[in-house]
């Protein structure tokens, strides 16, 4: 492994404070530079390792950029049809209630084609965790308008900016899910700064605990970037996300359990 290192004397096993979890495989992520997917994957993998969930986790991957997610986390996976992950996860959890079951979906998958599956799984209170990556665009197919694309935002299918009169308004699916009786814990986070990474990780850990207690659906939206789709550098895209996405999709808990 070709590496560059800092001060060599400090690099000793007893001084280790952070290394990639073994739940992440050695496969090189297929994502563009700076894409939040990788960070979200890693946090999820860290929780799976720290909570000792490898042997009980069954993940459901979506259609979209993260379609190959099953190549990156060393757990059992099912690859669902576009939008259907919550239905797939419903059956897994119903048939194997002792397992830890989650879906990982993008905005097109969860909030457009999978709207019905999302709403109904959450409304039934399926005891699953849903990780929802919202970057306001269809990344995999090359930057088309998503249900979450902001008003005026340019994409390859809204090249003059999203005109809400003809193209509809951005859908705040997480807000909708929070109103459903079946959802238990609903939060919106991001992974673009160390502080936000910590918060998101905490949220995922909560969802794991709630699933063990059979509390119902936990949905964690991660507002993320798409440097390629937004046509920006990764650093610019994170700044643009703070300035434009966060006002529309404010970070924080939308529904917290009364404990």
């Amino acid at each position: 492994m070709a590496v560059v290192t800092g001060i060599k004397e400090i690099i000793k096993p007893e001084n280790l404070v952070y290394k990639k979890t073994n739940i992440m495989t050695e496969n090189i992520l297929s994502y563009c530079p700076g894409c939040g997917h990788g960070t979200a994957h890693r946090i999820l993998a860290e929780i799976i390792e720290e909570e000792g969930l490898q042997s009980e986790a069954i993940g459901v991957s979506p259609v979209g950029c993260s379609v190959l997610l099953y190549n990156y986390l060393d757990i059992d996976w099912q690859e669902a049809a576009h939008g259907r992950a919550p239905a797939v996860a419903t059956a897994i959890k119903r048939l194997m209630p002792e397992k830890f079951v989650f879906t990982y979906q993008g905005d097109g998958d969860l909030a457009a084609i999978g709207t019905a599956e999302t709403i109904h799984a959450c409304n039934r209170g399926e005891n699953i965790m849903i990780i929802f990556i919202n970057n306001g665009i269809y990344g995999m197919t090359g930057g088309q308008m998503a249900p979450t694309t902001l008003p005026g935002m340019k994409s390859s299918t809204s090249p003059y900016g999203r005109d809400v009169k003809t193209m509809g308004n951005p859908l705040k699916m997480t807000d909708i899910v929070a109103t459903l009786p079946g959802s238990y814990y609903v939060t919106r986070q991001s992974v673009h700064t160390p502080a936000n990474v910590k918060k998101t990780k905490k949220a995922i850990r909560k969802a794991v605990r709630y699933q063990k207690l059979d509390k119902g659906t936990c949905l964690i939206e991660i507002v993320s970037n798409c440097p390629s789709g937004w046509k920006m550098t990764p650093v610019q895209s994170n700044k643009w996300m703070e300035e434009n996405m966060f006002p529309y999709y404010p970070l924080g808990d939308l529904k917290t359990p009364v404990e």
Partner: peptide
């Protein structure tokens, strides 16, 4: 299920187990 589509995808999830 909420639809035939959801039902068959539940079958997918269960069969895969």
């Amino acid at each position: 299920a909420e639809s035939e589509i959801a039902a068959i995808n539940m079958v997918y999830g269960g069969a895969a187990c």
